[in-house]
């Protein structure tokens, strides 16, 4: 791991992370984009910063083959997506069908029906 670590890589990673953080901050603080695009953008910025830090701080992807660390990370990220996205989709369906006090709001939003 330490073969890949140089002062330069840490400085580059640090500066890029600051830029990405501030970018996301200003986008939200000044509401520069529409809601859905804003959401996608800040999540995208977070993912890019994740990759920057993985590369420059944790030196992932520069190890010699076989790149177990990278493969394991990718597998876990896949499972994390299943957990988080799966939970959101499933519970939104469950709430729609099963939570009576929200039902009026859902019916209005999703199907344009007044209770």
């Amino acid at each position: 791991m330490h073969k890949n670590a140089t002062t330069k890589s840490y400085i580059v990673g640090f500066l890029l992370s600051i830029v990405l953080t501030l970018a996301a901050y200003f986008l939200v603080a000044n509401h520069l984009l529409a809601d859905k695009i804003l959401l996608t953008s800040i999540l995208g910025l977070a993912v890019v910063q994740l990759m920057i830090q993985l590369l420059f701080f944790l030196h992932l992807g520069k190890e010699k083959k076989p790149r177990w660390n990278l493969m394991i990370l990718i597998s876990f990220v896949g499972i994390i997506l299943i957990i988080v996205v799966g939970s959101i989709i499933i519970t939104s369906h469950l709430n729609y069908n099963m939570m009576p006090k929200d039902m009026g709001q859902y019916m209005l939003q999703e199907e344009g029906m007044q209770k």
Binding site: I89, I90, L94, Y96, N97
Partner: peptide, 8 residues
């Protein structure tokens, strides 16, 4: 049977 609906 908890109620996620037919699609899920």
């Amino acid at each position: 049977t908890m109620g996620a609906g037919a699609d899920i």
